[in-house]
Amino acid sequence: SDFTIRIGDRTLHLKNVSEEILKILEELLRRGIDFEELRKIVEELIK
Score class of each variant (00 low, 15 high):
residue 25 L to Q: 00
residue 11 T to C: 07
residue 25 L to D: 00
residue 2 D to R: 00
residue 38 L to F: 12
residue 18 S to Y: 01
residue 39 R to G: 09
residue 15 K to M: 08
residue 2 D to M: 01
residue 40 K to Y: 10
residue 14 L to A: 01
residue 42 V to F: 04
residue 39 R to F: 12
residue 12 L to C: 02
residue 19 E to C: 11
residue 12 L to H: 01
residue 22 L to C: 07
residue 9 D to M: 03
residue 25 L to N: 00
residue 31 R to N: 11
residue 36 E to D: 13
residue 17 V to K: 01
residue 6 R to I: 15
residue 21 I to T: 15
residue 14 L to D: 00
residue 3 F to C: 14
residue 34 D to H: 08
residue 15 K to C: 10
residue 7 I to D: 05
residue 29 L to H: 04
residue 34 D to N: 10
residue 9 D to S: 05
residue 46 I to Y: 11
residue 28 L to T: 08
residue 10 R to V: 13
residue 37 E to Y: 03
residue 36 E to M: 06
residue 19 E to L: 08
residue 17 V to S: 03
residue 33 I to V: 09
residue 15 K to E: 10
residue 26 E to I: 08
residue 26 E to D: 09
residue 39 R to E: 15
residue 9 D to N: 10
residue 3 F to G: 03
residue 21 I to L: 11
residue 16 N to K: 03
residue 43 E to D: 14
residue 16 N to R: 02
residue 45 L to N: 06
residue 8 G to H: 03
residue 47 K to S: 13
residue 3 F to V: 15
residue 9 D to W: 03
residue 28 L to G: 03
residue 42 V to N: 02
residue 1 S to V: 14
residue 18 S to R: 02
residue 32 G to Y: 02
residue 5 I to H: 00
residue 46 I to N: 14
residue 19 E to N: 11
residue 28 L to V: 10
residue 11 T to R: 02
residue 23 K to D: 12
residue 35 F to C: 05
residue 1 S to L: 15
residue 24 I to G: 08
residue 39 R to Q: 15
residue 29 L to N: 04
residue 24 I to E: 14
residue 8 G to A: 02
residue 43 E to M: 10
residue 4 T to E: 15
residue 37 E to K: 05
residue 40 K to A: 13
residue 4 T to H: 11
residue 24 I to K: 13
residue 30 R to F: 07
residue 20 E to M: 02
residue 4 T to Q: 11
residue 23 K to N: 12
residue 32 G to T: 06
residue 14 L to T: 00
residue 6 R to K: 15
residue 38 L to G: 02
residue 46 I to T: 14
residue 15 K to H: 13
residue 29 L to R: 03
residue 24 I to V: 11
residue 13 H to I: 11
residue 13 H to Q: 07
residue 21 I to V: 15
residue 20 E to C: 02
residue 43 E to I: 08
residue 43 E to Y: 08
residue 46 I to K: 09
residue 17 V to T: 05
residue 39 R to H: 12
residue 23 K to W: 11
residue 12 L to A: 00
residue 19 E to H: 12
residue 29 L to G: 04
residue 45 L to S: 07
residue 30 R to L: 12
residue 25 L to R: 00
residue 13 H to P: 02
residue 2 D to Y: 02
residue 31 R to L: 10
residue 39 R to P: 05
residue 11 T to I: 13
residue 46 I to F: 15
residue 7 I to R: 00
residue 35 F to N: 05
residue 12 L to Q: 00
residue 18 S to E: 05
residue 35 F to I: 06
residue 38 L to A: 02
residue 4 T to K: 04
residue 7 I to G: 00
residue 16 N to T: 02
residue 19 E to F: 07
residue 44 E to G: 10
residue 37 E to W: 02
residue 11 T to Y: 10
residue 31 R to C: 06
residue 38 L to I: 09
residue 28 L to P: 02
residue 32 G to V: 04
residue 17 V to H: 01
residue 5 I to G: 00
residue 39 R to A: 14
residue 8 G to F: 03
residue 35 F to H: 04
residue 42 V to D: 01
residue 4 T to R: 04
residue 44 E to N: 11
residue 33 I to N: 08
residue 2 D to C: 14
residue 5 I to N: 00
residue 25 L to S: 03
residue 18 S to I: 01
residue 7 I to F: 07
residue 31 R to F: 06
residue 22 L to K: 15
residue 35 F to A: 07
residue 25 L to T: 09
residue 9 D to E: 09
residue 15 K to G: 06
residue 42 V to S: 11
residue 2 D to W: 02
residue 34 D to L: 06
residue 14 L to N: 00
residue 45 L to H: 10
residue 38 L to D: 01
residue 47 K to T: 14
residue 5 I to M: 01
residue 2 D to F: 01
residue 35 F to P: 08
residue 8 G to Y: 02
residue 3 F to A: 06
residue 2 D to G: 05
residue 5 I to D: 01
residue 18 S to L: 01
residue 47 K to Y: 12
residue 20 E to P: 15
residue 5 I to F: 03
residue 47 K to H: 14
residue 11 T to P: 01
residue 10 R to T: 09
residue 22 L to E: 09
residue 41 I to D: 05
residue 43 E to Q: 08
residue 17 V to L: 04
residue 33 I to F: 06
residue 25 L to C: 06
residue 21 I to Q: 15
residue 11 T to Q: 06
residue 4 T to C: 12
residue 9 D to V: 03
residue 47 K to I: 13
residue 46 I to A: 10
residue 37 E to I: 05
residue 15 K to L: 05
residue 16 N to G: 12
residue 38 L to V: 08
residue 37 E to P: 05
residue 2 D to S: 05
residue 27 E to S: 08
residue 12 L to R: 00
residue 28 L to F: 07
residue 45 L to W: 05
residue 37 E to Q: 10
residue 41 I to N: 10
residue 42 V to T: 11
residue 4 T to G: 01
residue 10 R to G: 04
residue 22 L to T: 14
residue 33 I to H: 10
residue 30 R to Q: 14
residue 25 L to G: 02
residue 7 I to A: 02
residue 17 V to P: 10
residue 5 I to W: 01
residue 1 S to K: 14
residue 47 K to E: 11
residue 34 D to R: 07
residue 19 E to K: 11
residue 39 R to I: 15
residue 9 D to T: 11
residue 26 E to C: 11
residue 45 L to E: 07
residue 4 T to L: 12
residue 29 L to W: 03
residue 26 E to M: 09
residue 15 K to T: 13
residue 24 I to H: 13
residue 34 D to E: 14
residue 42 V to K: 01
residue 35 F to Q: 05
residue 15 K to I: 08
residue 22 L to Q: 14
residue 12 L to D: 00
residue 45 L to P: 03
residue 35 F to K: 04
residue 23 K to Y: 12
residue 43 E to C: 03
residue 28 L to H: 15
residue 23 K to V: 14
residue 42 V to E: 01
residue 32 G to W: 02
residue 4 T to D: 13
residue 44 E to T: 10
residue 34 D to F: 04
residue 40 K to F: 11
residue 2 D to P: 00
residue 15 K to D: 04
residue 26 E to P: 04
residue 15 K to W: 05
residue 5 I to A: 02
residue 14 L to W: 01
residue 44 E to V: 10
residue 45 L to T: 07
residue 44 E to M: 07
residue 15 K to R: 10
residue 1 S to D: 13
residue 30 R to G: 08
residue 16 N to D: 09
residue 1 S to H: 15
residue 1 S to F: 15
residue 13 H to V: 14
residue 45 L to C: 03
residue 38 L to S: 01
residue 23 K to R: 10
residue 21 I to S: 12
residue 21 I to R: 07
residue 21 I to H: 15
residue 29 L to M: 11
residue 17 V to D: 03
residue 35 F to V: 07
residue 13 H to L: 06
residue 40 K to C: 10
residue 31 R to T: 11
residue 25 L to Y: 01
residue 9 D to K: 05
residue 14 L to C: 02
residue 46 I to D: 13
residue 47 K to G: 14
residue 33 I to T: 12
residue 10 R to N: 15
residue 7 I to P: 00
residue 1 S to R: 12
residue 43 E to H: 10
residue 44 E to D: 12
residue 42 V to A: 14
residue 36 E to L: 04
residue 25 L to F: 03
residue 14 L to E: 00
residue 28 L to D: 05
residue 7 I to S: 02
residue 41 I to L: 09
residue 24 I to P: 08
residue 31 R to P: 05
residue 2 D to I: 02
residue 47 K to V: 13
residue 1 S to M: 14
residue 38 L to P: 01
residue 14 L to Y: 04
residue 32 G to Q: 11
residue 3 F to P: 01
residue 13 H to E: 12
residue 25 L to E: 00
residue 33 I to P: 08
residue 46 I to L: 15
residue 20 E to L: 03
residue 10 R to Q: 15
residue 17 V to N: 02
residue 36 E to V: 07
residue 47 K to L: 11
residue 19 E to M: 10
residue 42 V to M: 08
residue 29 L to S: 06
residue 6 R to S: 15
residue 22 L to F: 08
residue 33 I to W: 05
residue 28 L to E: 14
residue 6 R to Q: 15
residue 43 E to A: 10
residue 14 L to P: 00
residue 19 E to Q: 11
residue 3 F to T: 08
residue 8 G to T: 00
residue 35 F to R: 02
residue 45 L to D: 06
residue 6 R to V: 15
residue 37 E to H: 08
residue 26 E to V: 07
residue 47 K to A: 12
residue 16 N to Y: 04
residue 22 L to P: 06
residue 34 D to M: 07
residue 36 E to P: 04
residue 38 L to C: 03
residue 4 T to V: 15
residue 32 G to P: 13
residue 25 L to H: 00
residue 31 R to W: 05
residue 27 E to R: 04
residue 10 R to F: 13
residue 33 I to S: 09
residue 34 D to Y: 03
residue 9 D to A: 04
residue 21 I to P: 03
residue 43 E to S: 09
residue 27 E to T: 07
residue 11 T to L: 09
residue 31 R to G: 07
residue 40 K to D: 13
residue 27 E to K: 04
residue 1 S to C: 09
residue 21 I to F: 14
residue 28 L to C: 10
residue 7 I to M: 06
residue 5 I to L: 03
residue 18 S to K: 03
residue 17 V to C: 04
residue 39 R to T: 15
residue 11 T to S: 06
residue 20 E to N: 09
residue 41 I to T: 12
residue 33 I to M: 09
residue 46 I to P: 05
residue 46 I to G: 12
residue 9 D to H: 06
residue 32 G to F: 02
residue 1 S to T: 12
residue 35 F to G: 06
residue 34 D to I: 05
residue 40 K to Q: 13
residue 45 L to G: 05
residue 3 F to Y: 11
residue 2 D to N: 02
residue 30 R to S: 12
residue 24 I to C: 10
residue 45 L to R: 03
residue 15 K to V: 12
residue 38 L to Y: 03
residue 47 K to W: 12
residue 31 R to A: 12
residue 45 L to M: 12
residue 28 L to N: 08
residue 10 R to D: 13
residue 22 L to G: 12
residue 30 R to V: 11
residue 12 L to S: 00
residue 26 E to G: 05
residue 18 S to Q: 05
residue 47 K to C: 14
residue 38 L to W: 03
residue 5 I to T: 00
residue 28 L to R: 05
residue 42 V to I: 10
residue 28 L to Q: 09
residue 8 G to L: 01
residue 8 G to Q: 03
residue 6 R to H: 15
residue 18 S to C: 01
residue 24 I to F: 08
residue 18 S to D: 11
residue 34 D to Q: 13
residue 6 R to D: 15
residue 23 K to G: 15
residue 13 H to T: 08
residue 41 I to Q: 10
residue 28 L to S: 09
residue 17 V to E: 01
residue 30 R to H: 12
residue 32 G to D: 14
residue 14 L to G: 00
residue 41 I to C: 02
residue 5 I to K: 00
residue 7 I to L: 08
residue 20 E to R: 06
residue 3 F to D: 02
residue 6 R to L: 15
residue 46 I to S: 12
residue 14 L to M: 04
residue 20 E to F: 02
residue 7 I to T: 01
residue 1 S to G: 14
residue 40 K to W: 08
residue 40 K to P: 09
residue 47 K to Q: 13
residue 42 V to Q: 02
residue 32 G to K: 02
residue 8 G to R: 01
residue 13 H to R: 06
residue 7 I to E: 02
residue 12 L to N: 00
residue 20 E to V: 04
residue 10 R to W: 06
residue 9 D to L: 03
residue 22 L to H: 11
residue 4 T to W: 07
residue 39 R to Y: 11
residue 28 L to I: 08
residue 46 I to M: 14
residue 5 I to S: 00
residue 42 V to G: 06
residue 12 L to T: 00
residue 26 E to W: 04
residue 39 R to M: 13
residue 19 E to G: 13
residue 24 I to L: 12
residue 22 L to D: 04
residue 22 L to M: 14
residue 45 L to K: 05
residue 7 I to Q: 02
residue 44 E to I: 09
residue 7 I to W: 09
residue 13 H to A: 06
residue 16 N to S: 04
residue 35 F to E: 05
